[in-house]
Design a protein around this nucleic acid. Structure first.
Lengths: 137, 137
DNA sequence: TTACCTGCAAAGTCTTTGCACTCTT
DNA sequence: AAGAGTGCAAAGACTTTGCAGGTAA
């Protein structure tokens, strides 16, 4: 099974890189479709999957939301805003030895981990303050 | 909005508790429907939501899988088997001060975190060994 | 020419919602 | 009796898949 070079695959890769981190398949599709109205969402999904297999990009799955795609960058953690659902990088050291803190593995073979913080992003807490101010005026 | 006591709500709560941790809405529904064939999945979802709001149970969302429901127990982390998708508790101290390790919060207000380990569970690694042995014989 | 890739539509998984009916209170 | 809760079906969000036709090599 040889991989062919296609315009669509290039577009998906470029778009993931241009959008920097954390784009969802839908955001990627919406960005591409503006310039290339004939592309289909299925093609975007298929190419995202292919690019992951090729190690060009990384898929990141988040609880209660769509999957997001990164260009390959160093391991890091994420914070998800409970108001708007957007995902942000967390400026914190990656704990590559965290598995050693596990007391009893019960036979489970650990291969990796993710930490997902939750909270409220700057934009949403600003909006909240404006709303509160309005409500009390 | 007063909450009424219904058989269905009791059944959902009992089933979450009986199944111990990590049951999905579907598992809960399938368990109840054996005894009460008239219950609908929508009712299970609605009662799970209600019980969460009441603080009787806790919803836990996992990347790339259905939501799962816990009876309230102490904070702890989870490991998800990449083969079978089952979720296990991790025997490790809860890092309640982890947010203090974040260097720059960029205006984000952190309210909690989750750590999700991934790997292969005991059952699946046993099966894998059996499969490997067969393949080489 | 081969067979991988695409666009489209349909289906699949998990969850929510609209509606009329049924219960609890 | 009032209105919260139920069952059913439909819809909604996200993703995958089947298929016929297109295209890279």
């Amino acid at each position: 099974m040889i991989r062919r070079k296609t315009i669509q695959c290039d577009l998906v890769l470029q778009t993931v890189n241009n959008l920097r981190c954390h784009a969802t398949a839908d955001e990627i599709y919406e960005t591409i479709v503006k310039e290339h109205p004939r592309i289909s969402k299925a093609t975007v999904y298929r190419n995202l999957q292919r690019l992951c297999e090729m190690g060009e990009i990384r898929k990141r799955e988040f609880p209660g939301g769509a999957d997001r795609y990164d260009h390959i960058c160093s391991d890091h953690y994420h914070a998800r805003c409970v108001k708007c659902g957007r995902v942000f990088d967390v400026d914190m050291e990656y704990m590559k030895d965290i598995e050693q803190s596990i007391r009893d593995d019960h036979g489970f073979i650990f291969t990796g981990h993710d930490i997902i913080f939750k909270g409220i992003c700057k934009d949403c807490s600003n909006k909240q303050q404006i709303y509160d101010a309005d409500a009390h005026s």
